[in-house]
């Protein structure tokens, strides 16, 4: 019997993973894999046809997700998975398009794309793995780094104000906004499932340990120490005012689902508006007749 034929030699999620690309590049103790597991479980539970689900990633450690999930998966340029997903979704509205990338990618270099996709209520799911630093390049300061944290390009500690991502997403028009840490596995899964089953711009921030860079440079211990930090310092506050969700260095992390509203998507607005103005001349787009 070949090892892959044995039950114990097989991965329970192998239908959704590119097993021919394993082992992956992530460090042991990294939180990204946990979020991938949650995503796949959410996908399985969602009842969506996986052939119609696409994953777009940008660049960075989390950017590698597109390379490991066995779906139509696109590893794009740095910061651009959101507009890439916009094109994919609009060209074939039947697709469920998920952007899976890191904080540097989505709100650092890709911040402009992020706010505009949220403003348009583009019908995509954005999963943002936030590890407070640029990890792939060796641990540089990011737009999410808490004040005081030490990173290679902030060798005396960060003094810039970081983004509060749920506040940013809500202010720009997102219809679903949640934040979890990767300790909250079941809740991450549930949020992703809800987002997959929802129409509109959904944003899920997942705070994860970067053990190799952020944690080591700040002497925060290993993955387990960080999970303990999440355990002791995160507080579930569903529906919290997103203005109050700043994260201080090793401070309290407010998690939960903050926004879950219904609003016509970009395509709904386009079809409704143009039909109203142009009447029968208008050829609706992406509407099943």
């Amino acid at each position: 019997m070949k090892p892959e034929d044995r039950v114990e030699g097989r991965h329970p999620m192998e239908e959704f993973l590119r097993m021919d690309r394993m082992p992956h590049i992530w460090c042991s103790g990294c939180g990204i894999g946990i979020v991938v597991t949650s995503f796949i479980e959410a996908l399985q539970k969602s009842g969506l046809d996986p052939n119609k689900v696409c994953v777009c990633s940008g660049i960075g450690c989390t950017g590698r997700v597109a390379g490991y999930v066995k779906l139509d998966s696109f590893h794009t340029t740095h910061g651009r998975p959101v507009p890439f997903a916009t094109g994919l979704k609009l060209a074939n509205p039947e697709l469920k398009v998920v952007v899976f990338s890191g904080d540097g990618d989505i709100v650092g270099i890709g911040g402009n794309h992020f706010i505009h996709a949220a403003r348009r209520n583009m019908d995509i799911v954005v999963i943002c793995v936030n590890n407070f630093n640029y990890a792939m390049t060796g641990g540089q300061v990011a737009a999410t780094t808490p004040i005081g944290a030490n990173l290679s390009t902030a060798p005396y500690g960060n003094f810039e104000y970081p983004f509060n991502l749920p506040y940013l997403a809500e202010a720009c028009g997102a219809t679903y906004v949640a934040r979890w840490t990767c300790l909250h596995i079941r809740r991450v899964t549930k949020s992703i499932q809800e987002a997959l089953q929802k129409r509109g711009f959904s944003f899920i921030e997942v705070i994860t340990p970067c053990v190799t860079l952020y944690a080591r440079r700040n002497r925060l211990g290993d993955g387990l120490n960080l999970l303990r930090y999440y355990y002791e310092n995160s507080e579930i506050r569903h529906g919290a005012d997103t203005r109050t969700l700043d994260i201080g260095y090793q401070g309290k992390i407010i998690v939960g689902k903050f926004v879950d509203i219904e609003k016509p998507t970009f395509l709904d607005c386009m079809n409704n508006h143009l039909r109203k103005v142009l009447g029968d001349k208008y050829q609706p787009w992406g509407v099943k007749s």
């Binding site: 890439f84 997903a85 979704k89 074939n92």
Partner: peptide, 14 residues
């Protein structure tokens, strides 16, 4: 930047 990213996405969608 976004324009060309969107074109590539749309082209992959056919």
């Amino acid at each position: 930047i976004a324009s060309v990213a969107a074109l590539i996405g749309a082209s992959w969608a056919g």
